[in-house]
Every structure is written in structure tokens, then in C-alpha cells.
């Protein structure tokens, strides 16, 4: 059984094809939207199906057990509205 390698900083000018996970790797994708999801809190039961299906991780769980939208990044695909069993999300045109 061996050990891991020693991570030693390069000693010449060094730039490698490396990244770290971070939001906005192509910018604020909210600008891609043509329509935006609007949550009706009164209809939302907090079932979290929209949160589960959202491809972007832009459905935010709120402290009252419901959901809100991260409009900075939401691309407006509309999956959340399509999967909501309670019609608590509407897609509203932004153009």
C-alpha cells in the first residue's frame, strides 16, 4: 500500500488546463431567458418536484418550505412549470 504523491508547486512558468467548480462558468445565464418562471406561493405545497427536475440548480428552497427562483442564472427552460402538479409555477414572457 503506497501513499499519495507530494503536491509540489511548479518552479517554472506554469499554466495547466485546470478548473474548479464555480457558478457562472459562462456568465449570468439568466440573460438567455425569453420567459421566466413565476412561483405562486399560495399554490406551492413544497413538494420539491421542480427542485428535483431543475437542470440548472436554480430552484432555491426557501425557509418557509417553498421555492424561489435564482433569476441570475435560470435559463427559462420551463421544466419546473411543466412538472409542477399544482400549477404553482407559470412561465411569463420577458420579451
Amino acid at each position: 500500500m503506497g501513499q499519495g504523491p507530494i503536491l509540489q508547486a511548479p518552479e517554472t512558468f506554469f499554466i495547466a488546463p485546470l478548473s474548479r467548480p464555480a457558478p457562472g462558468s459562462v456568465g449570468k445565464t439568466g440573460s438567455w431567458r425569453t420567459s421566466k418562471p413565476v412561483v405562486y406561493e399560495d399554490k406551492c405545497t413544497g413538494c420539491m418536484l421542480c427542485w428535483l427536475y431543475c437542470p440548472e440548480n436554480t430552484i432555491l428552497k426557501t425557509s418557509n418550505g417553498k421555492v424561489a427562483i435564482d433569476y441570475d442564472y435560470c435559463k427559462g427552460c420551463g421544466i419546473c412549470a411543466a412538472v409542477c402538479p399544482f400549477k404553482a409555477i407559470d412561465m411569463v414572457s420577458e420579451v
Binding site: P23, G24, E56
Partner: peptide, 10 residues
Amino acid sequence: IMPGNAACPG
């Protein structure tokens, strides 16, 4: 998934 990635909507 970090929001603001390059995936197409949906």
C-alpha cells in the same frame, strides 16, 4: 450543478 454553466435550456 453550478448555475451559469454552458448547457442548453432543458
